[in-house]
Amino acid sequence: MLDINTKKLMKNAYRITKHRGITALRVRVLGGGLDAGYLDVIKAIAERFGNGKVHITTRQGFEIPGIPMEKIPGVNRLLAPVIQGLEVEMGVGIADVNGGYPAAGTRNVSACIGNSVCPFANFNTTELAGKIEKLIYPNDFHVKIAVTGCPNDCIKAHMQDIGVIGLVLPVYDPGRCMGCGACVKNCRKVASGALEMVNYKVRRDHRRCLGCGECVLKCPTSAWTRGDQYYRLVIMGRTGKKNPRLARTFLEWVNEGAVLKVIGNMYGYIEKYIDRSLPKEHVGYIVDRTGLPVFSQEVLQGIELGSLGRAAGFIPFGGYTY
């Protein structure tokens, strides 16, 4: 006699699958990076309780299919070291590591590989993903967040409710510039054409600058160096049946504090405005209902934009309907 509370099962990060009585576990891999040792746990769960297969999800987690629903408690106990290592030790508040994941609504915070490997990355994406996870998990609201090291956006931050893109303010020392023009040419070619040569030295138009840091990378003399670290926040990108669209810039040239605060505030906004008559409502659709000004007013509370920071007053989200 199989009697399952599907709501609880799903909240525990398991899924109702097409095979009756068979579930699949979704393992969160914070920022997409983990010590290789955890793979042993994944392997053990798949082989002992699942069908021996592991699916790698788009959000950088592992989905372990073929698990009989009655095995869930056993799976959760086996999973404990993963939750301990990838969540609790990152500062995420989870009381019982043996009970599996306490929530699944707010999805795994994914991240590109960041500056631990990538030359283009402007910061440590894994670290920020950890700080965000700590701030928002566990939570049942259906929110997708991703963190990417530079405007190349390899993690597809533009497909998230909140996409965090790392920027750097390039600092120019004209005395060190030999006028080779490598930065100017490159910016025109791969970025936004924010640089031009004036009197054999480079002039940067901050309004056009993406903060990608390409000029710093291309400069042979270190005339361009890294200044302060900033972020661009793109919001409300999504796939789905109703209105797929890319996220658009909400904030740019803001610091980490502002990023974290906006994300935290967003949960208050959802709490306040979510349509509770629905089984779930994605935050993007809430913003569609309330309009951006209401969202802005809620999430920008207590935010210091700083001298460079800018917030969008109006966002033509666009996208399309099928």
Partner: peptide
């Protein structure tokens, strides 16, 4: 510190 071309 932090003035290398690559971040960090």
């Amino acid at each position: 510190t932090g003035k290398g071309a690559f971040s960090g």
